[in-house]
Simulated assay, not measured.
Amino acid sequence: MSQGGVFEADPGRLAAFIDELMEFEKEARKLSGEFLAATRPTNGWQGLDDDFANQMHERVRQEEQLVTDVCGALADVISGTASGLLGQLGTINGVQGDVLDRINRMSAAQGGVAGSGSDGRQKG
């Protein structure tokens, strides 16, 4: 993250967070089925064939569809977020690799001072 103009990234932690998001996405996809299974025993509460029952059957079907749609949308948002972060992780890894390559090239061009195993300070 950016603090005082310095950008820091921990690819390992970001990758672990992406893995957790993907698990949340799987769980969100299961939610609607679990909800419908949990409420199935109460599906006949409104009656069988009178006007009230007919009205309520349609309403119950609409509410079940709404739950299914919301759980699906939630899972899609989580999946999209994870996909975006995965792209950012690739960018971060690429930038880090490029910076390390440049540091190594500069070190080699200067006689290996930075890569000599010392703390990088010049002895004077």
Rank of each mutant, 00 (worst) to 15 (best):
E34R: 15
Q46A: 15
L85E: 01
E20K: 10
I18C: 00
V70C: 02
G94W: 03
Q3V: 14
N104E: 12
L21Y: 01
I92N: 05
R61P: 00
G12R: 05
R40W: 11
V113S: 11
K123W: 15
H57M: 11
S79H: 15
P41W: 07
S83L: 02
G120A: 04
E8F: 08
V60E: 10
L89G: 00
D10P: 00
D51A: 13
V60N: 09
E23W: 10
Q65G: 08
G12S: 07
G97I: 04
A82L: 01
D10T: 05
V95D: 06
D101I: 08
R29I: 05
G33P: 01
L89K: 02
D101V: 06
I18H: 01
F35E: 08
R121A: 14
R13M: 04
E25A: 13
Q46M: 14
G94F: 05
F35Q: 07
K30E: 15
L74H: 09
L100I: 11
W45N: 02
V113F: 13
L48T: 15
A37Y: 06
Q88F: 11
R29F: 05
G72P: 01
S32K: 02
D49N: 12
Q96Y: 06
T39N: 02
Q3D: 14
F35R: 07
A114R: 08
V70P: 00
L21M: 07
M106A: 11
G80K: 03
L85N: 00
T42E: 15
V6N: 11
D98M: 12
E64W: 05
S116R: 09
Q88H: 11
A16P: 01
G90W: 00
L100T: 08
G94M: 03
R102T: 04
S79G: 10
